[in-house]
Design a protein around this nucleic acid. Structure first.
Length: 491
RNA sequence: GCUCCGUUGGUGUAGUCCGGCCAAUCAUUUCGGCCUUUCGAGCCGAUGACCUGGGUUCAAAUCCCAGACGGAGCACCA
């Protein structure tokens, strides 16, 4: 890879990079729950830009709403873990709820600059005036009164809804979304973090994030189109403070196919609470934790996210694209194993080998062979059981024919040519007394019997169940309804 | 209603700023073939797209106008 030049990297260039000594970016999640897959796009892109430009990345928890987007105390760590799983390391981690005093200080400065006023209008009243381009009666309040009332807000002397601090922008700006927006409001519910539980006066995102971006020297902001107007609102703030606004790039929303569950933190949380999902890492949940548990590499997710590019239109991420990327990472290390789902037990008689020795990995013969005993009965998947008189080739073992009206199998003396000629299908199989397996998939749990060697793996190994697909070994000491629990990744 | 933004094959993307080299790139998907005692990988091949209508021009995916469709914001959410 070329080191410099615009030799196309994995992402389009950020604007005006040459104007800055260092590209500094932030990933600003709301810790109101663990991450869904869409959230992974932010660290994937920002982390990649960090690598492209040898830049700096901050993870800043924008946890300034203790009520409607109430932080989940365990989500802070889970989000950092998710970032690391994706392969990135934040240079710094901040929590907005630790920085409330800083926001207050800037609010006071803004008030002194004549840039804000306390307002006791109800939401509806203000909205009505605003939509007509009319100032509210509080707009011309003198600075001293605003100072006092803001101090009272900070002291918690108002209840929710009674008082706000508004930034004075342009009350008849042609875009109604930009007119005199709220910078601080009262929240009665204490913040779940002990350290922040006394605050009642909380900044809104546009204020908090605007101040923090400047204070942390952020040069490039990457965010969703839902925050398109944010930059425009914050520019008023930056003008009052005489700050330079960072470069901004917006992208569209991501949808992910293949899931029945809506990709929204609140929806997933609800399903988990109701027990519809077995936690955030349920394979049916469109979450980072879920694909991780399935053995999908963070890098694969990142690669697929990067292919979505940076367009502002909404995009659909095909999980097949994630799977394609993941195969490239895991195939080489994925030991081949047999797993027979919905096993049908069939006795096997006649003369034949006592065991089979297919390779652990066909591309790496030097890794050795498996040892699969045959016994007097084996299991096949229902669709693989031959009808009476038909033959199948038991992979690694040999050709068998259905005898006794289809109730048993007997070895034939056919050689491999029957397979290469296309007359006989090759199927996977397992001894009937092999370890039982529960395999969790996006479409529900499957049960099966595997070859004995499966228990020799370690947790977290990704294996390839031949003719089934890749799966991660999850629990070798499973106390549920099987000996081993696995999570299916993808074909 | 007001204000932004977007629209290239099934999916995503390149190209659009500075019109011609674009009968449109790459990836994925799907389907064939080769190889293979699975699946995958690998190799070969196929299907498949410039939202619509006008205009400018020798020439438009690219510029202009209009429209359609889609998304976002107009919160004391982030």
């Amino acid at each position: 890879m070329a080191e410099d030049e615009d030799d196309d990297g994995p992402l389009p260039d950020l604007p005006n990079v040459e104007d800055y000594d260092e590209v500094r970016m932030r990933c600003a999640p709301n810790p109101n729950g663990p991450w869904h897959l869409g959230s992974a796009r932010m660290p994937a892109v920002i982390g990649t830009y960090k690598q492209m430009y040898d830049g700096w990345m901050l993870v800043r928890f924008d946890d300034t709403d203790p009520e409607t987007k109430r932080p989940d105390l365990s989500a802070y760590d889970e989000i950092i873990e998710a970032v690391e799983y994706l392969g990135f390391e934040p240079d710094e981690v901040l929590k907005a709820s630790d920085r409330v005093e800083t926001y207050y200080e800037h609010a006071r400065d803004l008030i002194d600059a004549g840039g804000a006023y306390t307002c006791s209008c109800s939401g509806e009243d203000f909205s009505e005036l605003k939509n007509d381009g009319e100032p509210c009666p509080h707009r011309d309040k003198d600075v001293e009164t605003t100072r006092e009332e803001f101090a009272a807000m900070v002291d918690g002397e108002y209840s929710a809804g009674e008082m706000t601090l508004r930034v004075k922008t342009d009350i008849d700006h042609k875009n109604p979304a930009l007119r005199d927006w709220v910078a601080f409001r009262m929240v009665d519910t204490p913040h779940p973090r002990e350290e922040a539980s006394e605050y009642r006066c909380w900044p809104m995102l546009d204020f908090q994030s605007g101040v923090d971006d400047h204070l942390t020297g952020v040069t490039h902001i990457v965010r969703g189109i839902d925050l398109q107007d944010s930059a425009k609102r914050q520019r008023f703030l930056y003008d009052y403070f005489d700050w330079e606004y960072p470069e901004v790039v917006h992208w569209g929303h991501v949808q992910i196919d293949a899931y029945d569950v809506k990709m929204s933190t609140s929806t997933i949380k609800e399903l988990v609470d109701q027990g519809e999902l077995d936690g955030w890492d349920d394979p049916r949940a469109p979450t980072v934790a879920s694909v991780r548990r399935r053995g999908i590499r963070g890098e694969a997710l990142v690669d697929a996210m990067l292919e979505l590019g940076m367009s502002t239109s909404d995009v659909d991420l095909a999980m097949s694209s994630v799977y394609a990327k993941n195969r490239e990472y895991v195939d080489e290390d994925a030991t081949r194993r047999f797993l027979v789902r919905d096993p049908v037990e069939v006795p096997i008689d006649g003369e034949g080998p006592a065991s089979a020795h297919p390779p652990l990995h066909p591309d790496f013969e030097d890794r050795g062979d498996r040892d699969i005993p045959v016994g007097d009965a084996l299991v096949l998947e229902p669709g693989d059981v031959p009808d009476a008189g038909d033959r199948v080739w038991l992979k690694g073992l040999g050709c068998v024919e259905a005898v006794d009206g289809g109730d048993a199998l007997a070895f034939t003396d056919d050689d491999l040519s029957v397979v290469t000629d296309g007359d006989v299908d090759v199927v996977h199989w397992a001894p009937a007394d092999g370890p039982t397996v529960r395999m969790r998939t996006m479409d529900g749990d499957e049960h099966g019997v595997a070859e004995p060697g499966l228990v020799d793996h370690a947790v977290d190994d990704v294996v390839q169940f031949e003719r089934v697909g890749y799966a991660r070994i999850d629990d070798l000491d499973f106390d549920g309804d099987a000996d081993v629990q696995t999570y299916f990744a993808h074909p």
